[in-house]
Amino acid sequence: MSLSLTNGALNEVFETLSRHYRIMAPVRIVGGGRFSDTDNIQYGEVSTAEEIVWEEKSHFSPKEVIAPITQTLFQFHEGQLITSSVDRRKILLFMRPCDIHGLRQLDNMFLKNGDNEDFYYKRLREKVKVAMFECKTGWDSCFCVSMNTHETSDYDIACRFSESGADIHFQCNELREAFAEHGTESNFKPEFIKENQFTLKLPESTGLSAQEIRDRTIGHPLFDEYDRRCVECGRCTTSCGTCSCYSVNDVHYTENANFGERQRIWSSCIIPGFSDMAGGHSYRQRSGERLRYRLLHKMVDHKERFGDHMCVGCGRCDDRCPQYISFSNMVSKVTTALEETQHAE
């Protein structure tokens, strides 16, 4: 079933839904961009359709809704531990097809990566209803088609927005009932992008095994240039929809050191010291080594374990890097280098 709704009708639905849902979508932060007088597009709670930025790619992913940048795990009050609480409402989360695939990769890391599910991730993830943006064209940094993340049927509603309203296709009866009285029937079904502006040749196309790719990539001089270029800021990981690393800190309140809270905060394998170990030993001391590690994790290691690439081809890391380091270009260089090693045999 599909419906066509005006912005006014959408706003009426949003007002009703907000009693039971947090409606999370890309919003514009005026003047909050990476350069002066530029805006930032990131996820926030909306109450009207006009607040949703649907015609531009968000600078940050929907990951921060279910894996917040800073998350209190529990509070400690002398001898007592109190688990942190979350908003009881469900979450209607607007996202693009590539980000829906990214959500599955986060599920792998937090829910299927070992014998224990992550309680703090799971309690938010279970609240999510997915509202998919139709994405037919993409942007110049996107390579979702190469990663096979340009299409999905894993959504509750799919939306095609316009300046005056939206067409919505329903796969969730609960949401269909909420919208039903406010729209008129339509024949809308979401379409998907068929071709990006460039095609990415992946390392696996060489026919080498995951271990062979690692063996031939580690120590390769192609990463030396990134020792000079990368400034180790971590923007590539904070904008990524599938990075899941964090640090854990105990915060003691100033008034009484026996009271405080334990937090986990996003961290990054790009930042110096992330891989430091007890005794002062440090893995991957150079930035080029850390970028190599990130590339192998996204393109090789995760797929070997879970069956899918961790990278979904959204291109946000390329968009956000202040040194204009392109992850997709780095992947192409690795593939070319691997082919050269094969020809030399």
Rank of each mutant, 00 (worst) to 15 (best):
M1F: 13
S2K: 09
L3G: 07
S4Q: 10
S4F: 08
T6I: 11
N7W: 03
N7K: 08
G8F: 11
L10E: 01
L10M: 10
T16D: 13
T16Q: 14
S18M: 05
H20W: 04
H20A: 11
Y21E: 00
A25M: 13
A25K: 10
G32S: 04
I41V: 15
G44D: 02
S47R: 12
S47V: 13
S47W: 12
E51M: 07
V53E: 04
P62F: 01
K63F: 05
E64V: 14
V65C: 04
A67G: 04
Q71A: 06
F74A: 00
Q75P: 11
F76L: 00
H77Y: 08
I82K: 06
S85D: 03
S85G: 03
V86S: 03
K90F: 04
F94I: 07
F94E: 01
M95Q: 04
M95T: 06
R96H: 08
R96N: 07
F110K: 00
K112M: 14
G114H: 05
D118V: 04
Y120Q: 02
K129F: 15
E134A: 06
E134W: 09
D140H: 11
S141V: 13
S141I: 13
S141A: 15
S141C: 15
M147E: 03
N148K: 15
H150A: 14
A158W: 13
E163D: 15
G165W: 07
A166L: 11
H169W: 09
C172G: 05
L175R: 00
L175V: 09
E177R: 14
H182K: 10
E191P: 10
N196V: 05
L200E: 00
P203Q: 01
L208D: 01
L208M: 09
R214Q: 13
D215V: 11
R216I: 04
I218P: 05
G219V: 06
G219F: 06
H220C: 07
F223Q: 00
E225D: 06
R228H: 13
R228Y: 12
R229I: 09
R229Q: 06
C230V: 05
V231I: 15
E232C: 11
E232N: 08
C233A: 09
T237L: 04
C240D: 02
Y246Q: 07
S247D: 15
D250R: 04
V251E: 06
T254C: 12
F259A: 06
F259Q: 07
G260C: 05
G260E: 01
E261C: 02
Q263Y: 06
I265L: 09
W266F: 04
W266L: 02
S267C: 12
I270C: 11
S275N: 15
D276C: 15
A278F: 14
S287N: 04
G288R: 01
G288C: 02
E289D: 12
R292C: 10
Y293G: 14
R294W: 05
V300I: 12
K303V: 12
D308K: 13
C311V: 08
C311Y: 03
R316I: 07
R320W: 14
C321Y: 06
C321F: 10
Q323D: 08
Y324T: 12
V334Q: 01
T335H: 03
T341S: 12
Q342K: 14
A344K: 11
